[in-house]
Structure formats: C-alpha cells, structure tokens
Design a protein around this nucleic acid. Structure first.
Lengths: 343, 343
DNA sequence: GCTCCTTATACTCATATTGAGCATATATTT
DNA sequence: AAATATATGCTCAATATGAGTATAAGGAGC
C-alpha cells in the first residue's frame, strides 16, 4: 500500500478541516436546530447564487449551520474541537455528541479556490436539553421542518408532497432517456417517498433529499449547477451543503430513536409520558399511539415515576417521570419499532 | 460563528488525510479482512513498541489495514479516492462502500511529529464478493476473529472470555479508586460483555474493544501508554489504531445486517439458503435457527429460487437462489432481529 | 435392491409483541 | 352537577418469534 512520504505530503496540498454542528433541541413540541443567519464574508462567493433563487427566500436569509475550523494544534480530539467552539460561542452545554459523516466533495465549498486548499467538513450531531435564545443573537433556533417540510407527517401527509414534490418527481422521471431509465427512476421514487406498497420510512431523510437534489427540484441543485430555476420546491435552502448535513443528522437521529434512549437527552429531567411522546413525535415526524407508547416505555424500565403530578393541561393530572440512567437497561429504547398510529 | 480566514489557515497548520479501508469478504464460512503485513518505513517508529509485546506476536507480524493518502488534487470525492487506490493496488472491484468514521485523536499516528502535520484518518467499510489471493502479495486475507477472538460465538462462548478477559476485567474493576467507581466499572462490563441479565449483543464490538483498551489488557493500550505488559489478552494487535477501526467496521456491519440486505454483497450471485445463512453467521458471530432463517428470508421477498439444485453436501440437494435486487423490497433484510438459536 | 446417514424443506405450536380500541379515573370548565 | 379533557388501565385480534417435529431427497455401504 502507498505510504505517506515526502511526495505524498507535497501532492496533498492544503486541506482545511471544518467542523459543522447540527445542534438539536425540542421546544414547544417542535424539533429545533441551531442556525446562523448572517451574511458572512467567507460566504460571499455563494451569495450571488443564493440571491438568484427568487421567491423561495429573500436576500437576508442566508442560513447556515454553525461551523468552525478545526485547529490541530489546539485540540487533542475532533470531538474536543467541536465542543470547544460550540460551547465558547453559544454557551450551550452539549450533552450527547456524535460524529455523523465527513463531507469532502470537491466544489462543496466555493472558498476552496481562494484558499488554495480543499475544505473537508466533519459533520456532528449534538443534542441539547433546551433551546434558549442562544447568546450572541447571530444564532437562532429554527424548526427543522422549515428546511424539510415534507418530513413532517404529524398533521397527516404534507400538502407539499402531493402538490409540488410528487408532480415534480414524476416529471423528472418521465424525462429520462430510455424506458428502462424511466422505470428505474420511478422505482427509486417509490422506495424513498413511499407508494401504495411501500410505506413512508421516516429514516430516509437523506435519500429523499438527494433524490430531490438529483431531480433538480431543490434550490441548491440549481445553484450548484448554475441552472436557472424552472421549478423548485417551496422550502428553505441553506448555504453550501448544509441542508445535506442536516438531512444526515435527521435521518441518523430518527433511526437512533428506535434503539437507543436518546430522547431523554432532549427532554427536561422530569417529564410526563405524553411530553416524552411528543418529543419523539417531533423528531420522527409522525404520531404515535398513546397507550402503546406508554406500555412500551414503562416496560423498558428506562423511566421511573416521581410520585408527583402535573396538571397544566386541563384534564386529569399526569404523573411525572424521570429517566433512570441504567447502563444495563440501555440496550433498547423502544423495541424494534415505535408504535405508530393515531392518538 | 468563526469563519475561515487568513488566520485560521495559518493556525491550522498541516493536516494530512489518510483513507483506511476495512475490506471484508466471506470465504470458507469465515469473515476475512484484507490486511497488509510488512514492515513499512513509515511505521518504523511503531516497530519498537510492537516488538516489545512479547509472545503475543513475533517481529515480522506487523499487521495493518490497507491505507493510502487522500490527494485533494486528484480525487473529486473521498469515496473516489478510496476506490482509486484500493482498486489500483489490489485489483479488487469494490461493490458496496460505506464511510465509517473519521479518526483524529492527537497521537494516533506517531508520524505526526516527523511530518509536522496532524494525520486524520477516514475509515471505510467495503464489501467484496470473493477473497482472491489479492495481487501484490503484500496484502492477504485474514480471518477477522484473529484480532477479535472473543467475538466468535459460533462454537459456543469463546474460552478466551472466561479464561482471560473476564478475570482481567474483574481485576481492573476492583482496582478502581472508590466503591462507586468499582460499581460503575462492573456495570459497564456487564453492559458490554453481557451477564445473566444482559445478553451478549454482537453489535457492540467497538464498545468491548474500547473497554479492553481502557482496562489496559489489550496490547495496543500498553504500547500507547508505554507501559510494560503485566497481562494482555492473547489476540493479534494492529498498527496504530487500526484494530479500533476494524472494530468499528465489524460493529457497523453486524448492525447493518439486521435491517439492510448487505449479506448479498458477500455471497456469490447464486447460493443456497444455508450458504447465505453461514455468511450471516460468520459476520454476526453466532448461530441461527435454520428453519426460521429460511422462513425469514423467503418471506422477505429478496430472493427467488433458480430452479437449480446443488448437492455438494452429502444430503438432499439444496435449491439455489439469487438475490432479487428489488429496490422496493430493500427496506428490511431480516426483520427486527435475526433468528438466533441452535442449528 | 435396501438401510443408514445426511442435509433440505415443510409444518406445528406455544409464547411474545404489536396495533388498535374500549373503559375508567381524575382533573378543569360551565 | 354536567360536560369536557386528558391520563391511565385493560382487552383482543393479528403477527412475529423461538423452538421443535416431521417428511423429502440425495449419497454410501452392503
């Protein structure tokens, strides 16, 4: 195998490492993500492209995930690097932190040319307990369905799917070159967006985003390809590939919810079972059957009642619970699948 | 958020990106991983440490995963970079490729000092159809249980667990400072290695390795800390953090087996159901109930019989099947859990 | 040919898990 | 006190799972 030698060093040229964080919290029963919303001189080269996108967003809404460079001299580990600048800049105390993926496609960052270096970005998912207004005022918490309106099925199938996305995808599919290719495209649409036979799988956030990107009906695709906008789904784009990173985080978190007790990182220390359920629903984007959710959670042995009750909601008071951080019981949060269904 | 500016560039210093590949195949019912086994000048600084390890391995068995530098000028994407040098050097045609994790702890690579650069390594998992002798002769296929003998439960609970690991871990736990810390350590041991209440979870390969590392009873831990070897589990170490990367790959693959049809990447185009089963068993490290496995696979709709039979095994001939690459059926390989049990 | 051995495949059955809904309890509001 | 709202308890049918038993279909030895 090739080794690292003088030559390798010379050929590699400059590489910059950026750390991009998807910081998630749930407040008011909505999933929030920390977003930076300013025109950054470092992003200037993108500005034009974004501004061209027309009615989907106005000039001042350049939205990005918080990110910062990784300083190899300063940080012993990548995780430490991330925690470092996030806690420094947002005063947020990150609990759960997980590395997501390293993004390194050429051209993902237009600054590469100025810098004369390739910019890799290591994406992180972090869960925060509460969504406080977040220090500096530059950062703010946004409902993540702002960027992915088709992912929220809590109020039934989103209109944007039937009205915009499905027609758009169908058109894209039929524009393929060969009949075989057309069939192939329809298959992929069904597999990711569901159909009569295949039910919607909430974990496939990234696959859906990538299909929309490929079909060119998401604004970033048009920006990146320098196309004019024939049609684009009404949703908020983000700078660079940040919406892709967010999609990765959403899919990962939704998946993890099913086999690891990560919800507890998102709710306050004590909570009612219904509050817990609503946090799960916010993340997974669909409703759960209340009685079955309760059965599942109680059976898991991950929570214990506090003996105290809470009656802010009009009806019978609900007992509050706390998470029992039992390392032994941590194997499963919620069994094979969450109890989907109506309330 | 901090941006990339001149200053950032200056402070970042050099960063080298290495791509490390865990290339897996199943042959003769054993999981194999492609390993490089030579004394590399780039690894010279590690050589001493490894040689010191005594009876666990001899001088000439410096084992490493195949790795190569990432050339930002040459490769458009990280995946392309990996495929590039792997296919170039091993003549292997990689099918399934998945990014695993980016490893970046300071000190993970002793060459950092010579190079004056931080070396990050992006780990990849790749699945190959067959384990051919692999070109150059430098690389060879090794049974992955060579490095993780405690992970193979196909012939019952491995002796190394009862004879070496469990005593070693127990000793480590009791050496903790406070009673609380002792309890904590025992909890972690139970959670990762199982106990009466907690059954062995085959996915937790990395957690187990990291616990062994922390307990100092794995040779790399002693090498990295410069300790002398009081006691170490009889298993083969690897260069740098490659055994950790392999553990990550094993855990990821074992997990994926349960909800994605990845086994089919590891078996030939046609196979009997029992061959398929044995591939799953090789990866997951435990035996499955034959009749139930068959039921599960048939029900999944992922395979179809070819109408041809194969009788190499003495008994009644088995029908051969092929994988139906049905994008719609790809949701689940094997349902929530694989049918564990005796044959 | 028949018997024994071996593996493949079919079928059964008890138990656990899921999805869905009904019933009851305990608060607030009118 | 009645109406309304939510919490919690319980039932039940449909599946899924784990573990066998039974039968089929080949080869080897006699």
């Amino acid at each position: 195998m090739t080794d690292f030698g003088e030559q390798a060093v010379a050929e590699q040229g400059g590489v910059q490492i950026g750390l991009t964080a998807v910081i998630v919290a749930v407040t008011d029963d909505e999933p929030r993500v920390l977003v930076v919303r300013r025109v950054d001189h470092a992003l200037a080269s993108t500005e034009e492209g974004v501004a061209r996108e027309g009615d989907a967003l106005s000039d001042d809404t350049l939205e990005a995930l918080p990110y910062g460079p990784f300083y190899p001299g300063r940080h012993r580990t990548l995780d430490a690097g991330l925690r470092g600048w996030v806690e420094e800049q947002t005063q947020l105390d990150l609990g759960y932190v997980e590395q997501l993926y390293t993004f390194g496609d050429r051209g993902r960052d237009p600054r590469e040319q100025e810098l004369g270096a390739r910019v890799l970005s290591i994406g992180y998912l972090a869960l925060a307990q509460e969504a406080k207004p977040a220090g500096a005022g530059e950062a703010l918490w946004q409902n993540w369905y702002r960027y992915f309106p088709w992912e929220d099925w809590r109020a039934g199938k989103p209109e944007i799917l039937t009205q915009e996305i499905e027609p758009g995808l169908d058109e894209w599919a039929t524009q393929a070159d060969s009949p075989a290719e057309i069939r192939e495209r329809f298959s992929r649409i069904d597999a990711t967006f569901g159909s009569e036979e295949v039910r919607w799988n909430e974990d496939r956030v990234l696959e859906r985003y990538e299909l929309l990107y490929e079909a060119g009906i998401v604004t970033e695709a048009q920006r990146d390809r320098g196309q004019d906008m024939a049609f684009s789904v009404h949703s908020h784009p983000m700078v660079l590939d940040h919406r892709r990173i967010l999609a990765t985080a959403m899919g990962r978190l939704r998946g993890k919810l099913k086999y690891r007790p990560v919800v507890f990182e998102l709710v306050p220390p004590t909570f009612t079972l219904f509050e817990l359920q609503k946090a799960v629903e916010a993340i997974s984007g669909n409703l759960l059957h209340k009685q079955n959710f309760r059965r599942l959670v109680e059976k898991s042995g991950l929570v214990e009642g506090t003996g105290k009750y809470e009656s802010r909601t009009g009806g019978r008071p609900a007992e509050t619970y706390r998470y029992v951080r039992d390392i032994l019981a941590e194997r499963l949060t919620a069994g094979p699948r969450l109890p989907v269904g109506k309330r």
